[in-house]
Design a protein around this nucleic acid. Structure first.
Lengths: 237, 237
DNA sequence: CCTACCGATCGGTAGG
DNA sequence: CCTACCGATCGGTAGG
């Protein structure tokens, strides 16, 4: 090939550089989620994007780094959204409700992200996992804090905190495995259902009695436990 | 090698044939669970067992068939145990309680089995999956029946059945990812906690009011909803 | 971004 | 159950 042709190619490459990099990450996420990381070759990703394998290396440093980037971005983003969801919520019950409904909705909307993040963690090397695990711990801590505070202020039963939180997190992850975006339920509806279910397992019975069989949404919860700025209302209804 | 030596080897092989086959399945399950199917080579399994790769083929027909056998056995065994657990239980609430506590205890005791069964399903080919999926469907059906019957007889709230069951099954699977057999809780304790949590999310509030904050074990449930052989006791306590 | 290519690994087989 | 070996695939690189 003559020099001009090469120059031309490089110019063309640069003008679509950002788009190509995004395409790589998009298709990689999709393939990793549906076929698994191990069963997805760089050749599959290159083909989906429409380039040769060697060309991938102007955008990524390797297959494992590609997986790591996807997992790190997804986990960081999730943490930030959950932190934002509980940011100015004082009442523990309302905080847990916000965590569960936000988390479930995210796991519905970004199924592939969730699936890859949890199915492929073993593929990372130790150094990479040492970045992801603290992020996960921070997410779990939001839940641990909410449940602990809820027990302390008397809105939750005195459950074993760690196991309960593990249960809630498992429930949320599971959503990514079965949620059907073409089905009847919206992410928000699934979120509300799971939040209701989780809260009912935790709230003290006196509060549940006041709620009856109505859905435990944020508004009803605020009536039941107060908004954290004053005395809990335990004779609502 | 002379004929005598070969004969000797074959005799030695036959006398430990059963033991070797079991060793292969044991080590394969352990390696698949900890390192994943894709990252486990037949060489790893052979080394763990203490034979050469080629020798594996007198016991198994291939790597994928080995995975399939493990998954099929585990799933069939689980189905049978769950069926036995609900066999002569009439009350829907008691049936769900039996399902959850038996299932959670099994997933604690056989973590590797559970992890492999759910993490590696994508590695099977279509024909193999067509054996496993109906078994899973039968397991899910036990839950669907219990929840539906519980709504019909008035012990459960009118929840969306499918989503609720998906939630319970996710919760149970999750146990295999975090349960620590060297930790403080026995499988039975974890089982009882999760069964309590699940039942509280489902029972109608009048029944919960009668239960108060006591653990919803089988005995208490029988008092609350009856044993299915008579009229539900809804004014217990 | 492409052509051409490589070393390593892997599941599996032949034959005894 | 072992020795010896193979074809296929894969992540990745050199060089333009």
């Amino acid at each position: 090939m003559v020099a001009d042709e090469l120059a031309q190619r490089i110019v063309a490459a640069k003008s679509t550089r950002r788009a190509t990099k995004e395409l790589i990450y998009e298709h990689a996420l999709h393939l990793f989620a549906t076929r698994s990381y191990a069963r997805t070759g760089l050749r599959d990703i290159a083909q989906a994007v429409g380039v040769e394998v060697a060309s991938l290396y102007s955008h990524i440093s390797g297959k494992k780094a590609l997986l790591f980037d996807l997992m790190e971005f997804g986990t960081r983003d999730l943490l930030q959204r959950l932190q934002a969801a509980v940011d100015e919520v004082d009442s523990p019950a309302l905080r847990l409700h916000a965590l569960v409904s936000e988390h479930v909705a995210i796991n519905c909307r970004r199924q592939n992200q969730t699936l890859v993040t949890f199915n492929e963690i073993r593929e990372l090397d130790t150094a990479q996992r040492e970045v992801i695990f603290p992020l996960r711990d921070q997410i779990a801590q939001l839940y641990l804090d909410a449940v602990t505070a809820g027990i302390d202020d008397g809105s939750f039963r005195p459950v074993p905190v760690r196991i309960t939180v593990n249960g809630v997190l498992s429930l949320e992850r599971g959503v990514a495995t079965w949620y059907d975006p073409t089905g009847a339920k919206t992410p928000e509806e699934v979120a509300e259902l799971h939040a209701d279910q989780a809260l009912r397992g935790l709230l003290r019975v006196e509060l549940l009695t006041a709620a009856g069989d109505r859905t435990l949404d944020a508004e009803l919860l605020r009536d039941l436990v107060g908004d954290g700025s004053g005395v809990p209302v335990d004779d609502a209804e």
